[in-house]
Each structure stands twice: as structure tokens, then as C-alpha cells.
Amino acid sequence: MTGASLFGLAACVLIGLGLYGVLAHAAPLRRVLSFNLLGAGVFLLFGVAARRGAAAGLPGDPVPQALVITGIVVAFAATALALMLLRRLTALRAAERAADGLRDDPKGR
């Protein structure tokens, strides 16, 4: 087995793991982490295609490598947006709970 296909298999396992994590976890943070694993697996598959397509004196096909760079930056933006949404949601929920506590409603949820 060549090095590239070894990483290819690793990519498949990562995709399986990431997909499982995204679907099985309910906590948003864990889902975001798993989404990143899934993404890493997909990017690695591009990397394997690039490696196998090495030619013209290059260590790999530059097209999929460039696609991965674009993809990594987009995935970072997604992670940042998701975590900022989560931060705001947590703060609002905490404020809601505090307000509920102050009201001292016996039937409060």
C-alpha cells in the first residue's frame, strides 16, 4: 500500500468519525468539533488525490491543494460564526434564568 492510500484510508475513518460525532452529539460545541474532523477528512481526500496526481516535477497536483486552502479558511469562518452564536445564546439563556430567578416564580420552568 502506498503512503497516499494509507492517508486515504485515514481520511475515510475521519469522515466516518466526524459524521458520527455531528449526528450523535447534541451539544453545539461538540457538533462543531466533529464538523471540523469531518472537514479534515474531506480535505485529506483532496490531498490524497493531489498526491496521487503528482506530475511535472511537483510533489502533488496543485489544483486540489489550492482548493483545500480555500476550504480550510471557509471552515475557520464557519467555526468562528458557530461559536459566536453559541456564546451569545449562552449569555442570553443565563440572563433569562437570572430574570426567572429574580421573579421567583414557583411555576418557573
Partner: peptide, 24 residues
């Protein structure tokens, strides 16, 4: 919005996965 984002991201990841296979 957070739930929408998670669904959309899973969708994007699967879409990109298919793209990677086709390129290979």
C-alpha cells in the same frame, strides 16, 4: 440560527466530500 448553521455545514461537508471523490 445555530441549528440552521449546523445543518447547512453538514450539508456543505457532504457536498464537498462528493466533489473530492469526483476529482480523484
Amino acid at each position: 440560527a445555530l441549528r440552521y448553521l449546523v445543518f447547512a455545514l453538514i450539508g456543505s461537508a457532504l457536498y464537498l466530500l462528493g466533489t473530492a471523490i469526483l476529482y480523484g
